[in-house]
Each structure stands twice: as C-alpha cells, then as structure tokens.
Design a protein around this nucleic acid. Structure first.
Length: 613
RNA sequence: CGGGGCGUGGCUCAGCCUGGUAGAGCGCUCGGUUCGGGACCGAGAGGUCGGAGGUUCGAAUCCUCUCGCCCCGACCA
C-alpha cells in the first residue's frame, strides 16, 4: 500500500479534547476521528487493527464450536419489556420511536392532549443482546439434543453513557463481541464457562498484551461467579490485586481482605461513655492524637480506634433499611462488600444531613453504640477486639472501651475492608498482594436462569419434561481492547503496536523517492515482502524530508521500519529498524524478506513470553 | 445530574478585560532551493469568530438565552 494514497493526516500537535494516551495517539496518527461525544469513525489504519483483533477472536472461538451470527442493532421495546429491563435499564438505553409511534404521538397532540413522549418510545439501540438471543433460541431450540449451544456476534453497540470519555475506551458507540451459551444444567454451564475462560486467555495472549483474568464482583444478580479480563496499564480505571504467591487475582472491589486484629494487650474494660473529648477535631488521625488521658499521654494509636459509616440499602423487592459498618480506624471500607453482604440492590452512603439528624451528632462523632433499627456490620479485623474508641453520637465526644461483640448486640462480623497492596493473601496464606491498574476488556459471566425464566426459553429433557435453559454470557470490548493495547504499548514518540494487531507490519520508507535507484529498490522490496505475505505500508511521499518521515513512522508505530535511501544504497544496503528496541540492522535488499521473517519470529517469540500468566 | 473550563480556517492557539478593517504557527496548493530525526525562501487558497436574540453608529469582544465539547465528582457494568 502506498502511503501517498492512504487516507491519513498525522498531526504534530495533540488535539485539545484528547485526554488519554490511546486517544491522543490515535487521533494524531490519523486513525480515528470524532463525530460526536463518545462516537468515532475508524479510519483505515484503525480499522485494520480492529479487524485483525476480530479475526483472532473468531479463530479462537471457532475452536470451541461457537457459532457466529449477527443480530439487529435496533431492538423492539417489547423484548425488553418481557425481560423487565425496559424499566430498569435506565438512560443508558437510547430509546426512540419509529414513524408509526411518532404519527400516533402527533395525532394525540393534535387533539390537544399532552402525552408523555417517552410512553411512545417503541425501539432502542442495543447495548447488549440477552433478550434478542434468548428470543432466537427459544423459537429455534426445543430439545436437549440441540444443547449446548454457544452463539456470538461482533457488532456495534450503543450505550448512552452519562459521561463518555477516554476516547475508544469508554465511548457511547463501540464494537463488542458478545456471546451467549445455553445449557441443560448448571454443570454444563460451568464447563462452558471455563472453556470460554480459557478461550479468552488464548485470545488475549495472541493479542500480545500483558493481561490478567481477575475474579470480579458479580453484583446482586444471582451471586454467580464471574471473571473480568484486564489489560494491565497504568491508566486503567480498575484496581487489581494479585497474589505473588498463588494465582489469586481479583478486582479490588471483590478482593478478600485478611483480618488484621487490633492487637490490644490491655485487660478488657467496661465501656466508658464520652471518655474522650476532642472539640472541633474531625479527622480520624487528628482525633486519635487528641484522645489523651492518664494511660494515653500520646493519644490513641489509630489501630485502637474505630470508624463508622451509615448506609441506606434499597432492596429489589422494595423497601429500605439502614446499615452500619464499623471498621478499624486505619482501614478503608469497601462499599461493594457491604452491599453484597446485605443483599441490597443499591447501597448509598446516608446523606450527611440525614445521618447527622439520625445520630444527633456532627460528622466525626457518629458511632454504632445505641443506634436503633440499624443492621450493624463489623469488619472481621475487629472480631475479638476490645478497648476500642468509637464516636459517642454526641458532638465532640468519643466512647472508650468498645467491645463490638458485647456493646453491639446482634452485630455481624464480616469482611468489609478494602484489601490493599502488601496484605497477606488469605487464599494461600503465604504470598502478598501486588497492585496493578487494569482496563477491563472482557468478561465471562454465568447468567443462570435470569433470562430463560423471564422469557420462557425452555427445552424438553430426556424425560420429556420442560426446563429453563441455563445461560452464560461472554463479552469482549473489541475497540476498547485495541485502545487498551495502545495504553500499554507506547513511548514518547508514538505507538508500539503488538505485531498481531499492527495495522501494517512493515513501514517501508523511501527516503529519496525522487531518486530513480531508491524508487526502484523500494518498489522491489515492497513487492518481495508482500509476495512473502507481509503487510507493508510504503511511504513513497515526495518532497518530504527524511526526518518528517521518521517522525510519522514512529507515531504510527508499526513493529518494523525499513529505510531505503541514497546514503544506504551507496553501500549497497537498506536498513531495518525495530520500533520497540530501536535496534538497526543493515542488509542487502535481496536479504530483506529473510531478515524481516527472522525479526517477526523473534518478536512473536518475545510476545509469547511477555503475555499474561 | 452537581461543580469547573472551553467553543476563532483542517490542527494548536492569540485577539475579548478596555467594542472600531479577523491574526500567528502547523497543515494544504504552486514555484524554487534543500534532503538520514518534523528544512528554507517566495506566492496563494481557506474563517457568516458554535447558534439565536439584545445593547450600540459599529460586536469575535458587552448582555441574555441556547447548543456543543472537555475536566472533576456522582452514577453504571
């Protein structure tokens, strides 16, 4: 491919509204163009990468017998009403009406009525396709003999994010591989889950990026297990903790936190109410330092203090209740754990004014003792702890001598704490947590019976009995993955494409295209490489200084750069340069195919060893 | 949705406070000289200053409304 004919405009300066590296580099490299907030065109170079990744996905899924199909992007409201999600999905679901509904709406308005337009929305843009696939399967699959079945599509999705950001990483329109599997029972769904888990490991390993499968929070739905696949990158939105002694890797929202006992050696005392007075001091650390009495002239160690949070939990079946969480003063609460423990559909920190009214005290002095109608949860690090301090529910005062088991009747001990780097892994008991940042690019999830029950997707078993199918779903954010690969692989000069998804593998630069010999050699090399199966972008642009071509090549970041210029040809050589290592090899034009092949083999070898574990 | 910021040629930005003939650099076109890490000279093309309304003799500039975009937060999986 001749670069002079390629649709591309590189930019020297970073566009102002690009805020993350992948977006900046892709815009500067002329790969994507924004059409609206969170909505991008994929220009030829970007689209080549995207298609390459899609092919990897297709090939690996084919190995597990998955079948590809394509569902509509515009979905009828009825299906979503049937599953119940029309009501619950919220504003991320872009809804609208077709001409028929519009006409009816206009007619009602004509008659002087003022109907709510939203009542007339009868279609939406698909953000995910559980409803449609379930509808397809229930109409076409009736027998256990046809199961299991795993169906997937690669398709443009739309989610009307409140705040689209980070370019392709959190756009409103994006390409996603979404797969769904159907099974006769739980065991078979589990088998498929692990088959997909392994397929995903192969996919991301082939992509050539560092990644981790991580145990994730499955939310309130069913309590089934789920894994997310994360590309590791400093700019990742998610925090991941990984044990250095075993395989346990999890999203910090879910990571088990080992109990860290307070270790108070004093004899247990009675609860001394309002023992410490620290007027006007709000911060946990400052308060502890100000808790001075005869036995504690230096104040109280933070590990002997407690902190308290009041939440309001809302349940799916309706109703709310108050939940209190007590943790050691130096520990951080993990609200997801609190939420999951209570089984609530939603959990919000009680607004400050309400909490102050409820406890009768200012923030900083709230405590668990004596509160009525609150489900009291205590972090397991405080199980057996005595002589703690806690807010007195009286402004400026703290109790001293708290023994949660004694003073908080009916309280439950649970893991509520946010795990942190360095904690001893509770799974193996030996290793320590290491922290990573990750970009979530894939998820495997056991859906269970949620959709098959609500939508009547059933099969007849060997006994002729009707059963709901057990479902699983498996997603990969295609465009997000390509962006994530860049987030992980770039330097000051531009992108460092992993070989498997590089738009082109070799960037051939004609440094003096006006020179007949250079032109002839470059042309020949391009032909030879393409004949050998390599993808070559030939920068044949005239009137451009070598320096400018180097800069562009670095920015585009194809793995190999081949330079043909008068200077080299005087010695009878062209130069092959590795984008990542910057190593340069001088070689005769006839040797190009052999050397490029060798370089490819070396790069692919390195990818295999650098991939995820 | 709350808070903050920004909308001026394709890109980055100046001009606005203090109203008076729309600017620079990059990119693009043409000519010439260059040519191994974003070369130089000369000549050009390209903007109803996001939109609407208002104040004024006169608005990119002041006022009101509106739309779009970006950031932080909340929210979501």
């Amino acid at each position: 491919m001749k670069q002079s004919k390629l649709l591309i405009q590189t930019l020297r300066e970073t566009p102002r509204d690009a805020d993350v590296v992948s977006q900046q580099l892709m815009m500067r490299a002329g790969m994507i163009q924004k059409a609206a907030a969170g909505i991008y065109s994929y220009l030829p170079l970007a689209y080549r990468s995207i298609r390459k990744f899609e092919e990897i996905v297709r090939e690996e899924l084919a190995k597990d017998g998955c079948q590809e199909l394509l569902m509509p992007a515009v979905l009828p409201a009825e299906l979503w009403q049937e599953s119940g999600r029309w009501k619950f999905y919220g504003d991320e679901l872009l809804r609208f009406c077709d001409r028929k509904a519009k006409a009816e709406l206009a007619e009602r308005r004509q008659r002087g009525e003022t109907p709510d337009e939203r009542e007339f929305y009868n279609f939406c843009l698909g953000p995910t396709h559980e409803e449609v696939i379930t509808d397809i399967v229930r109409k076409n699959v009736r027998s256990y003999k046809q199961l299991p079945m795993n169906l997937f599509q690669i398709q443009t999705k739309f989610r009307d994010e409140r705040r689209p950001r980070f370019g392709l990483m959190r756009g409103r329109e994006f390409t996603m591989k979404d797969g769904y599997s159907f099974h006769v029972d739980d065991a078979d769904a589990d088998r498929e889950y692990w088959a997909m888990f392994n397929a995903y490991k192969r996919i991301f390993a082939r992509l050539g990026v560092k990644f981790r499968p991580v145990e994730a929070d499955s939310g309130a739905i069913g309590g089934s297990f789920t894994h997310e696949f994360h590309v590791l990158a400093g700019s990742g939105e998610d925090a991941i903790l990984s044990c250095d002694g075993c395989e346990y890797t999890s999203n910090i929202e879910k990571t088990e936190a080992p109990a860290l006992p307070a270790g108070v050696n004093e004899a247990p005392m009675e609860l001394r109410k309002d023992h410490f007075r620290t007027p006007g001091v709000v911060g946990q650390v400052e308060q502890a330092a100000g808790m001075i009495d005869a036995d504690h002239p230096q104040g109280m160690p933070l590990t002997q203090t407690s902190k308290f949070f009041l939440y309001r939990a809302t349940f799916a079946e309706g109703g709310t209740k108050l939940v209190g969480a007590v943790l050691r003063g130096d520990h951080e609460v993990n609200p997801v754990k609190v939420k999951n423990f209570t089984g609530a559909a939603e959990l919000e920190l009680m607004p400050l004014e309400e909490a102050e009214a409820f406890t009768g005290t200012k923030t900083g002095f709230m405590g668990p003792v004596g509160l009525k109608d609150v489900q009291m949860l205590v972090d397991r690090s405080l199980e057996g702890a005595v002589n703690l301090t806690c807010g007195a529910n009286r402004t400026d005062y703290h109790h001293f001598g708290l023994d949660p088991k004694r003073d908080l009747p009916g309280c439950t001990f649970a893991d509520l704490r946010m795990a942190q780097e360095g904690d001893v892994c509770p799974r193996c008991g030996k290793g320590h947590y290491q922290a990573f940042r990750g970009i979530e690019v894939g998820q495997v999830f056991k859906l269970g019976l949620k959709y098959s029950k609500s939508m009547g997707c059933t099969f007849l078993d060997e006994q002729g009995r009707e059963n709901p199918m057990v479902m699983g779903c498996y997603g990969i954010g295609i465009t997000r993955t390509v962006a994530a690969a860049i987030e992980q692989n770039y330097d000051a000069d531009g992108i460092l494409w992993p070989w498997p998804i590089a738009p082109y593998q070799v960037h051939l630069l004609s440094l003096d295209p006006g020179n007949a010999e250079v032109a002839a050699v470059a042309e020949q090399v391009e032909k030879d490489l393409e004949a050998a199966g390599f993808e070559v972008l030939h920068d044949d642009r005239e009137g451009m200084s070598p320096g400018a071509k180097f800069k562009d090549a670095d920015l585009l970041g194809f793995p190999l750069r081949l330079m043909v210029g008068t200077k080299g040809l005087k010695e009878g050589v062209v130069e092959l340069r590795d984008r990542r290592t910057k190593a340069v090899l001088k070689l005769k034009p006839e040797a190009v195919v052999a050397e490029v092949s060798a370089a490819r083999d070396r790069i692919m070898q390195e990818l295999e060893t650098a991939g995820g574990r």
